[in-house]
Design a protein around this nucleic acid. Sequence first.
DNA 1: TAGGATAAGGTTTTT
DNA 2: CCTTATCCTA
Length: 721
Amino acid sequence: MHLSEIIDGLNDNQSQSVVLDNTQNALILAGAGSGKTRVLTHRIAYLVTQKNVPIDAILAVTFTNKASKEMRERLEVLLRRPIRTMWVGTFHGLAHRLLRTHAAEANLSPQFQILDQQDQYRIVKRLMKENSIDESKFPVRKVQWFINQQKDEGIRPGDIDAGHNYFVKKSLEVFGFYENHCNANGLIDFAELLVRSYELLRNNSELLTYYQTRFQHILVDEFQDTNTVQYRWIQQLFNGKNNVFCVGDDDQSIYGWRGAKIENITKLSTDFAPIQTIRLEQNYRSTGYILKASNALIANNKNRMGKSLWTDSGDGDLIDLYEARTEIDEADYVVGSIQKIINNGIPANQCAILYRSNAQSRAFEERLIKYNVPYIIYGGLRFFERAEIKDALCYLRLMENTEDSVAFERIVNFPTRGIGAATIEKVREHALMNQTGLFQAAISMAPTLPTRAANALIGFMQLIEEMQDHAQNLDLSEKIGYLIKKSGLFDYYSNDKTDKAGSKPANLEELIAAAEQYTHEEDSEMNEVTGFISLASLDSSGDSSAPPTQNVQLMTIHSAKGLEFPYVFLAGLEEDLFPSRQSKEEPHLLDEERRLCYVGMTRAMKKLTLSFAIKRFLHGQSNYAYPSRFLSEFPEKHLNQIKQKYGATPQNYQKDDVFNQDIKPQANGDLSIGRTVKHAKFGFGTVLNFEGDGESARVQVKFKTAGTKWLISAYANLEFI
DNA sequence: TAGGATAAGGTTTTT
DNA sequence: CCTTATCCTA
């Protein structure tokens, strides 16, 4: 292959990055839409075709499964050959591969199972109960969070001193119990995948040397999102003779809450010196106004490495800003706009609705259904996290390995078969005393139980054994098809009245289809079943089905990272929602919110529409909100402001309210709910409620800065704006 | 023990 | 508001 095939069509900075020589490491500061995936894939193609680097000498790390899949596909197109054996994957996926390959050296059972968040929660909760730790004082979720936070920093229970902090002290105690439990049962959570594989190489110099020598080129995508352990993981594989090539954008760091360290990108320059930094600032995605506004917004952050995107494709349309009365009005406007776009012959999947939190999707979903616009929601409950799917997989796991106690607990009495809490508790005790798995314990102690419980339990174990026998020679998808019927899961969910949408049986069938699509690598460290189960844990999205072509796409901004859409609707730009309430007090959290907003805006190619609602119903109640501060952080001249349909003044909210019955058409002289007022001392506020009339009226006002207060109208001297 | 009915709790983002 | 835990009855 000729060099020109690889660098043709790249701009100067891009091709300079691609053909960097091997004497130094590289940091590519790649702005949104500057073609970073292109640079990464072309870099690899350059190494393979021009420098004769074997594909097995390359390690390419991404953050999402989607990104690694895409990179693999693009590489195969570029190189015109399959690259199955190449190490391309997510940090978690690659760490998992390492641990499967060297399970013994990592002190792991070869059958180890991956715990997802839910499994982990359950275990932590049970351990706390067993050890009489009060859940009301130490919420399970917080303790779980604490444990993961430590692990993301590579910290083990023995590594820290709680001092006088009682919460830390108790959490550490649970952390210890949890570790023991996981070690005894061959369980690995997400964070553990990383820590454990890091420690594996740290404690085993032979292996470390092997991988250091093998991976001549280490390429990392989204470097700004690496956490402490991930950074060390890369650092460890670097021996000074090989090369790291990191691509990142400090302005798009949005996973600080998950332990990502934005500083890692600056640490890189000292830890991996000499390093060459190249900036990619030409944007090929968005029009001029979108970029100018995004640049202005992100300029409000301190401590940036500095970068300014530009385009030569012209200003394009102004950014629309819609001021909605409520979230329903907002959804109406957005869906209405999308309908117009579709009516112009543009496919629906070119439109995306992005939001800060998943809960916001509901209003949009309702309107999309009402107006008959096809849509697809990403996130929310992911396929492999659905209860019915996990149930089925647990049957599969138990059939594969009867010692899988997590699976045993989940399905021993599901669908219900007369095995109650009391019986299970006895099994657990017996297992603990004899240091066996639950299944083994159940076999040996069943005869000691009362007849009814004993029969039920023995019946369950016979069922599993019978299923094992019968499924032995079936292929994976047939096995799953068989087990969902035989176990009674399918019948159970078919008759489940709480499944309003009735989608659960369909999901079970979808699982069979997913198993059919699953292609198992022959040379894998795992057998087919284990491979499929691991995939289900690590790639929770699961819907491997063809990408939707005629659906409007709805997702959080977090999951939109790395994607682009011609028409983007960024909704819910309100204080306390975006930026979120828990972020606004802390400058570094607020900066991350701002980056998130920047990421959202820079997803748009042709047209960006922002919106906010004055009143929003969320988490069971209605609240008035102020427009997000982010809206005032870029020049107004980039905006085309659109007020709500029925006029711009708050008084008009009372009339023509066909969409929102929940806005009460109440008025009392100058008073009306939703009106903006000014108080001499408290400043500006919004009327939330009032009672009584005239001089004796009491008014509840939510002030911008002073909080919410009840005031006596006669004394408050409110000025109505 | 099962399964409905009622009460309580928790809400940002996810590999 | 929705999910989950707990209570209560058959």
